[in-house]
Simulated scan of single mutants.
Amino acid sequence: MTDAEARIRASFARQSMMQTLGAELGEVGEGRVTITAPILPGALQQHGAGHAGLTFSIGDSAAGYAALTTLPQSAEVMTVEMKINLMSPATGDRLVAEGRVIRAGRRITVVAADVWAETDGTRKHIAMLQGTMIAV
């Protein structure tokens, strides 16, 4: 495990929101991060699908950590803005957010994430996010 990956895993472990959602940090690579989360009964909206807040939370975090992989060890990131397109209900066993860097700058990094709903190994693309992270 690289120092950068260890730093990201330690940071993720400190996020109580991700713990509340049952989220787990998956792959960490240069400019790419995957986060998964079960669709728990406490994260449903009124129609029985996963709440958009769950989708947004793991997509935003995956994109933010992807940005962090491109920054110096002393840096952190925060979201400046994030847009989400919800394309399909979040139904299934779990969500998978794949964050990636579109363009890394010294201060501002443009990021994106795709979120998939999985059931029995079958994936459905449910959301796309695009945003900007700032190094702090």
Rank of each mutant, 00 (worst) to 15 (best):
M1G: 15
M1V: 13
D3Y: 07
D3P: 10
A6G: 11
R7V: 08
R9H: 10
R9P: 02
S11F: 13
A13H: 08
A13L: 12
R14Q: 14
Q15C: 06
Q15K: 11
S16W: 12
M18K: 06
M18H: 10
T20L: 15
T20S: 12
G22T: 07
G22W: 05
A23H: 07
E24D: 09
E24V: 09
L25V: 05
L25R: 02
G26L: 09
G26T: 11
G26M: 08
V28P: 01
V28I: 12
V28Q: 04
E30C: 06
E30K: 06
G31K: 02
G31I: 01
R32P: 08
R32K: 11
T34D: 04
P38F: 07
I39R: 00
L40W: 03
G42S: 13
G42M: 05
A43N: 13
A43K: 05
L44I: 11
Q46P: 01
Q46W: 08
Q46S: 15
H47D: 14
G48Y: 08
A49E: 12
A49V: 09
G50W: 00
H51S: 13
L54Q: 04
L54P: 00
T55K: 01
T55F: 02
T55D: 05
F56I: 09
S57T: 14
S57P: 03
G59D: 02
D60T: 05
A63N: 01
A63Y: 00
G64Y: 00
Y65Q: 03
A66M: 07
T69Y: 05
T70H: 08
P72A: 15
S74K: 12
S74H: 14
A75W: 07
T79D: 06
T79P: 04
V80G: 12
E81D: 15
M82Y: 15
N85I: 08
N85E: 10
M87I: 14
A90C: 08
A90H: 03
T91K: 13
T91I: 14
R94F: 14
L95D: 01
V96M: 01
V96W: 00
V96N: 01
E98H: 07
R100G: 10
R103G: 06
R103L: 10
G105V: 00
R107Y: 07
R107T: 15
R107W: 02
I108R: 11
T109P: 04
V111Q: 04
A112M: 10
A113E: 02
A113T: 00
V115F: 01
V115C: 07
W116C: 02
W116A: 02
A117R: 04
A117D: 03
E118C: 05
E118K: 03
E118S: 05
D120V: 06
D120H: 09
G121A: 09
T122D: 11
T122K: 15
R123E: 13
R123Q: 14
R123L: 10
K124Y: 02
A127L: 05
M128A: 14
M128T: 15
Q130D: 09
T132L: 14
T132S: 14
M133V: 07
I134L: 12
I134G: 03
V136P: 15
V136L: 15
